[in-house]
Design a binder for these strands. Sequence first.
DNA 1: ACAAGGATCCTCT
DNA 2: GAGGATCCTTGTT
Length: 193
Amino acid sequence: MLIGSDFYQCNALELAQKLLGKKLRYEKIELRITEVEAYMGPDDSACHTAKGKTPRNEPMWGPSGRLYIYLCYGMHQMVNIVAGNHDGQAVLIRSCEPIKGLVEIEKRRGNKKGPVLLTGPGKIGQVLAVDQSFNHHPLYRKGGISLHNAPEVKEILRAKRVGIDYAKPKDRDALYRLAVADSAWVSQRKGFK
DNA sequence: ACAAGGATCCTCT
DNA sequence: GAGGATCCTTGTT
């Protein structure tokens, strides 16, 4: 069942927790969200909005429940879901588990097999084939990418966020990286034990 | 107008 | 474990 816009009216950490286990649908592909990171807004030095509004981060200041797509290292389209209330928060989707469209997913990922297909934010963007034109796209309406309900996640793992060495210690150390405990479809490079 | 660096991934060793 | 790919955003001249 399609999730309505009210679902996203909370801070990024709460939304991150609620997003685990939910299903992202785009055309014939359906993914279960297994790992996310919360970016809490201007007071979070790891967050893109820590230095105020810029052309790039403008979607994060808009309505929640919409997409913010960030081009990283000139080649990876990172998929974020805007949280909060026009106050610069978002949740980065880091890993998913395939539910439907496995053949298409494997095709877009060079015919690889297993968790290497979808564990890592750059891979999610590659599989969904998003680009900058997906900025602002609402997930709570039919058409394009949408988010759908699923059974509650039993247990959640927490860890530090990845790749934010530039942030202040208090933000670097915050356990804002969340994952589904019993899923193999989680990037394991650091943190989770 | 310019330089620096990034919320990563892959291919080696 | 190390390094390259690749280009946009940002802050600074």
